[in-house]
Amino acid sequence: MNTFIQAENLSYAVNGRKLIDAVSIGFDPGEFVAIIGPNGAGKSTLLRLLSGELRPSAGRVAWSGEPAEKLSPARLALRRAVMAQGAALAFSYPVHEVARQGLAVVGRRLPKIQADKIVTRALAVSGVQHLSYRNFLTLSGGEQQRARFARALCQLKAAQEHGRFCQALLLDEPTSSLDLEHQLALLGAARAIVGSGVTVIAIVHDLNIAARFADRLVVLAGGRVVADGPAAQVIDEALVREIFRATMRVDRESATGLPIVLPQTNINRCDVHAQAFLARF
C-alpha cells in the first residue's frame, strides 16, 4: 500500500450516535484534498480522527503504515501540523510567539537564528509580519486565523530538519474569516507546499475555491463519504441540491471543465409555515 495516510473502516460514535460511519479513505503524498459537505456532516470529526486527536470507536488510521495510536504526540507532530477551528487563546501572547509555538516540540533543538528565520518567513507568507509584536487577542478574526496558519507552517518547516519523510497539513476551515485576498493567499501558500510533497487536507465550504485549489474533493454527508474525485466530476447540480440542499446553478469553465457554482435566490423553497413567518416579518 502506497498511500501516506490511510483510514480503514473508520467509525466514531458519541452516545450511540455515529458521527463517522465506516469511512475508508486514503491520502497520497503531495495531494491537495478538500473535504466538503453540509454542517454536521462529520468533516471536523474526520479531520480530528486523522490527526490522532480522537481515538476511533472502530477501524484505524495509519500514517505511512504505522497506526496513529502507536505514534507518540511528538512523532505525530513531525508528520503533520494542524490548524484547528478557533480555539481561544488564554493569555495575551504576541503574534510572533504564537507562531513560535509551532516549534515547541519539533523545533526545540534548532539554533536560535534558524528558528527566528523560520518564524519570520512563516509570518511573512501568512501576511501577518507587520503584526508580529501585536497582542494576538487584539487581532481581528481573520488576522488571528492567519497567525495560526503561520504557526502550522512553522511546525511543518521545523519538522523537516529531522529528516525527509511525508508530511501533512490539516486545515479545518482555514479561510472561514478571511477576506478574498487572504483566502486566495492562504490557499495559494498551501498549494505551493503541496508542490514540495506535503499532503494538504482542508475543510472548505466555498465550492468554487475548493474546485480550483484541490486535486481531489471528498464529499461527506451523514458521516459517510458520498463522493470522492476531481472537482469536474464530483460537483454538479444534483450533488449541490441533494447533499447541500441548496439551489445553485452549476456552469462549466470551457477550458478546464471546472464547475462554476452560482447561487440562485429562491425564498419560495421553504415550507408554508416558514413562508408565513417571513411574510409577516
Binding site: R48, P73, L76, A81, Y93, E97, Q101, A104, Q155
Partner: peptide, 21 residues
C-alpha cells in the same frame, strides 16, 4: 514552561504541537 505555553490554546492544540498534555 514549554508545556504550559503549548496549553495556552487548549489541550487539543497542545497535542497537535507534539506535547503530552
Amino acid at each position: 514552561a514549554r508545556g504550559l505555553n503549548g496549553l495556552a490554546f487548549g489541550e487539543a492544540e497542545a497535542f497537535h504541537l507534539g506535547l503530552r498534555a
